[in-house]
Amino acid sequence: MADFVQLIINGLAIGSVYALAAIGFVIVYSATGVVNFAAGQFVMFGTFAGVATLVNAQLPWPFAYGAALLIMALFGALFFVSVYLPLRRGSIVTIIIGTVAVSITMQNAALLSFGSWPFRLPSPVEDSAVSLGGAIISLHALAVVAVTAVMVAGLWLLFNRTSVGVGMRAVAQDVQAARLMGLKVNRLLAFSWILAAVLAGVAGLMLGPMWFADVNMGDPIALKAFAATIIGGFGSLPGAIVGGLFVGLSEVLGASYVSSAYKDLISFGIMIAFLLVRPQGVFGEKIQDRG
């Protein structure tokens, strides 16, 4: 039982990271219709922003995290200005291919800046653990779940209780009508990209202590976030959360009770099953129902 509790917490922790990556993915997709193939590299940049501020610059924790997230916010704005804005008049496919190009560029930029040797990103609650139902739970894992819960609550408030969030939802549905309400559409779209980058930054900072900071870590994260959005429902925020947690749990439980060699097969197998049986996912709408 103790082992099971430990696995559940660990699964929820890694699932929380996938959920945050998936939420960033969904925010951008909902607002712009763009499937961001650089989403995994955004998380990787978040981890390396932490490496730069915590490990290299040796800043105190709060400043290091703040600086890393500020770097990610600036990166989101830069991405909007230099990739999305110039390409937005083209087809969506053009922008999507642009994100693929950027993902390759980001990976190589990280390789040039940090080298191929993995780093270890420390956690502020390193080596701390609590006992829960006989299981020894890493405090970092609990912190990841708690931080994700706070982020999700904050996002809910943003989208449902503020005019900025309502405006973002309006832009996501009908850009032309949003312009006719006087909404500053470009500013709201820029905010969507910045928000996605900051969420990826939070995911990266939390993932760093669980995985090694490796310039190649982006692709597996992107695939997991993608699986989470498919399972939860493409374009659905609750879906991204549920899907992320589900992928994290299936990965950890599958590795323990089946085989670590098949842990990815289980989550991707479930994703394929959803695509075949319920392509709209748990919370998603059928594509023909949108609009």
Partner: peptide, 16 residues
């Protein structure tokens, strides 16, 4: 805006 409530629809106009 089909996925917003009545109040939220009107808020998009009031937001200016």
């Amino acid at each position: 805006f089909a996925r917003l409530s009545v109040l939220e629809n009107v808020m998009t106009g009031a937001a200016i």
